[in-house]
Design a protein around this nucleic acid. Structure first.
Lengths: 328, 328
DNA sequence: CGCACACCTGAGAGCGCTACCAGCACAAGC
DNA sequence: GCTTGTGCTGGTAGCGCTCTCAGGTGTGCG
């Protein structure tokens, strides 16, 4: 346990174990042959010296990068301020711990693939996790990035996707509204260019059609501010609305504020359900009924898929569970 | 603009610019001599080839690591689930972009410095940003880590600190409660072992003493759940309480839920002010009056301070501004 | 003219690690 | 016997970069 001022190198380990650097490397990296005796002695030396492989050296020789880019698409860099992005980054940063990589956050303009090409040029990039991506962007993935990209929310032939079951979650929430007797159910949707938003809307349309109910759709943009405004629009166009499904919790919370501002009771007059189960949903007034969205697990899975370079199924879907609270 | 399959190396740049690798390196790294002509040609070659230095190689030869550890102290790894931590990581990950480093998130047990020693042994670590740290832990910083640690919320002789002006923010919020006529002001505090919590409490005590008002202090733990429970305790011990300052917004929101659950109006019967200005403070019902906490700027400053190895003032304080909304 | 002293350049070592390859011992098969 | 494997080992060539150091080439000054 002599803690050297200078951290131990593989050479130190090899010398102490009485083997060559090659053998020590094989044992530490767990690749190739090594006799049980050698293995044991190297292990002991590693423990004694508190040896930790130098990720930089490893990355250099292996040709893999060292930074996991979380790239968020959006009209402006302001998308990075979204708490959702923070959660993705947090989960990815936690997932990185066992790998020689760390997370870097970057904005990716919606138009053009210049941003992606820059990333592809960068040897330091171990992989990319795409957030809020468009199909157009996925088509434009530079070949240099193939196999090192995962996408949250949408996939293509070459980019594996990790996502919550948008349609299923939305369906659960809407069915819950229906089951509690609501029949004039509106929906506030999200940005049109986001496929995940599309799937929720589709589920809503489908359920309304199957139930023979009219579709009442108002556009949104994931923000609470827009949710508040949407409340007014819904009320203006369909004053008898008795339930609203919001594409995400932020919208739902804004919506509730708007409805109450208009003198309506929630859930008395209008029931509201959201999607995401953000931390605040549990403590809002009224507490929000919402379809959960395991962002942490999704982001971690995407990060790990990129970091360990193994083939990954083209789509991994995480199921959503309805969290019933007071608002619906 | 010929995009090579293999990303450009410094050798490619040097060859194209007609100089040696050494000269190219000097220009790119901005260190040492280089004639204006050489400088210009290297710059052009860099642009042409889309050259990006390989962080792994750079880190290897410079002896600096490649991962910025955000280490969060707490009783259990569950502290990592805090949205506050996500924001710190998000800001740090954004700040990392210009540096050859990426963020890794790690839990640090409250007791013992074993976690820190492990980090110190790891050559891959470019630096450490400590979150929620105790003074005891700061005393135990291994020498190998000196100069590569910044701490959010608390500092010591050897570790520079980055923090919001806790006392000032709390004072602003409490003065606001006082200015609006409240005189029976309670406070829900935070975990006792956290110095930042201590400073807010101290500010509260000071103001109460100066105003000749009684101290009404209830312990909390930063969670909404605890805030809700605290509402009951406050009401039970001091039924005539007409205002509460909560150590953070999550607590404040839980508190409001608890107060309303007890049939009280906010701010009619009891005014509530919080601290942090989390995203939901703006859309809660009622919207929360709170002292802002520029987490993003603080985290970015701490990350950058660690990444660029320059001396840093021992304490950097970010001012807090009161955001007046409906709850107080 | 010689010498110091600036400014500038390129050769080359080497950061810590992995991967390739040659080599060794021993066992099994023709 | 000789070949062919199988299991293991160590030497060594780099990965891409920085940095030291030995040399240039001017310019000013004694």
């Amino acid at each position: 346990m002599t803690p050297p001022q200078r951290p131990a190198t593989l050479d130190d380990v090899a010398r102490r174990a009485g083997v060559s650097r090659s053998t020590a490397s094989r044992v530490v990296a767990g690749t190739g042959f090594a006799s049980p005796a050698a293995r044991e002695r190297v292990r002991a030396a590693v423990d004694d010296l508190g040896y930790v492989p130098n990720p930089a050296a490893r990355a250099l020789v292996r040709g893999t990068g060292v930074r996991l880019v979380v790239a968020v698409s959006g009209a402006t860099p302001a998308v990075l301020d979204d708490p959702y992005v923070d959660r993705v980054v947090g989960a990815a940063a936690r997932a990185c711990a066992p790998y020689p990589a760390g997370v870097v956050l970057q904005w990716l303009p919606l138009t053009g693939s210049a941003g992606l090409e820059r990333i592809a040029q960068d040897r330091g990039v171990a992989g990319v996790v795409l957030v809020n991506t468009t199909e157009r962007l996925l088509e434009a993935i530079p070949t240099a990035l193939r196999g090192r990209v995962a996408s949250i929310g949408i996939g293509s032939r070459t980019v594996p996707a990790f996502d919550v079951d948008n349609a299923g979650g939305a369906a659960q929430a809407i069915h819950h509204l229906y089951a509690s007797g609501r029949r004039r159910i509106a929906m506030v949707s999200g940005p049109r260019w986001l496929p995940c938003a599309g799937r929720s809307v589709q589920a809503y349309r489908q359920i309304m059609r199957d139930a023979g109910l009219p579709v009442r759709l108002v556009p949104g943009d994931f923000t609470a501010e827009r949710g508040r405004a949407a409340a007014g629009e819904v009320l203006a166009r369909w004053p008898d609305t008795d339930a609203v499904f919001a594409i995400n919790d932020l919208t739902a919370l804004g919506l509730i504020a708007g409805l109450r501002g208009a003198g309506l009771r929630v859930p008395g007059d209008v029931a509201v359900a959201g999607f995401d189960d953000i931390p605040h949903a549990a403590v809002s007034t009224p507490a929000l009924t919402t379809a959960s969205h395991p962002v942490g697990r999704i982001a971690a899975a995407a990060a790990i898929a990129v970091l360990r370079r193994r083939p990954v199924p083209p789509v991994t879907t995480f199921s959503s569970a309805l969290v019933r609270r007071a608002s619906a």
